[in-house]
Design a protein around this nucleic acid. Sequence first.
DNA 1: GTATGTGAAGTTATTCACAGCG
DNA 2: CGCTGTGAATAACTTCACATAC
Lengths: 209, 209
Amino acid sequence: MNENIPDSSVRRLSAYLRQLEVLAATGVERVYSKQLAKHLLVGDAQVRRDLALFGQFGRPGVGYEVADLIEVIRVILGTRRQWKVVIVGAGQLSGALLRYPGFGLRGFDLVAAFDVDDKKIGTQIGNTIVRPMEELEDVIDEYSARLAILAVPPDVAQPITDRLVRAGIEGILNFATSGLDTPGGVYVSNVDITAHLEELSFKVNSNRP
Amino acid sequence: MNENIPDSSVRRLSAYLRQLEVLAATGVERVYSKQLAKHLLVGDAQVRRDLALFGQFGRPGVGYEVADLIEVIRVILGTRRQWKVVIVGAGQLSGALLRYPGFGLRGFDLVAAFDVDDKKIGTQIGNTIVRPMEELEDVIDEYSARLAILAVPPDVAQPITDRLVRAGIEGILNFATSGLDTPGGVYVSNVDITAHLEELSFKVNSNRP
DNA sequence: GTATGTGAAGTTATTCACAGCG
DNA sequence: CGCTGTGAATAACTTCACATAC
């Protein structure tokens, strides 16, 4: 699939998809770019541009079919397949993720969790049994997992990343605050909750300090 | 403080700050824009530009003092004060946040948690007791809290948001997948973990489907 | 009449490249 | 010299506005 796609467009496609899922669940069959734009604080032209990067999916004067557009965006994002995902670190956060039912519906199958803590190993979280770190490579191989979620203390984030990369993982969702070094072709997406709070702090502060 | 600051610059400032915190902890006293840039996949000019939006903090030929720059960025982000933050929804995710020690150090004090579930009310998570939703407005008022974290099911996210806004909250960190409507001057930062996974899916897929 | 798709225009962000300071 | 700070140049993204299709 093409390159030269702005990251911002990809993120908006996810947002459109969330919106469309709600519309589909409430029985809405058609939607206009203007409606999709409204909740996202973007213009309607932006919505059409984002979609135009990948093809023509609407009909002038009519709009978009909700069900079709959901499929289109899933194809674009690559989530019509079911990605096998391993999660390293079986703490509270991982527990929340493992129990969240939304991932499976959206193409992400959390197949295994790993931890170093003997007290956690063997316990069940959601539908998943916590395994020892030693099994990491074998399990990634067994499931042909290509994505991983990293929810471990910062000091072990980089060494575990290196192991994940060697084991064939191509995308890492990182909850550690430290950045990760990975070779080209291995992507990292960082979730830094502190950074989100700092963004709010900055904006609220600029408003009325 | 000034407007016309790109969101992307604010996000990068957070990233620089994370980096600087690590440098400070390891005893490094000086740093160049080039070093800060390296881990973040941006150019050194970008780092200097981001800082130049707010003033001049380095010395030509010398670089930046790590400790000074940390202070400068905290001032910019508004996190030298201690923000009082309430958290609504006392599930697994909130448990993880309440037990995370990093927020306090970085200017965010999670002062209260709320839930509708009688079984949770009164229990302690980290240092915080879970309170009934009825007390929401009083507690926000009592602490003069201006930020809130929302970790509740999507169907109640909007009504609770409305309550938070009426109670004086000015910034909301939202973990619900649905977007939130807020009046001008009330900021929302969305954490959509599915969107992060979709971003990885997209990139890994464009690489080698 | 209404909404899409898209060239063209406009805006914003990033990178270059170098003067000037330490 | 080396590194910052910053005009100037470039690149990227967004918005406008309208021909086209329904």
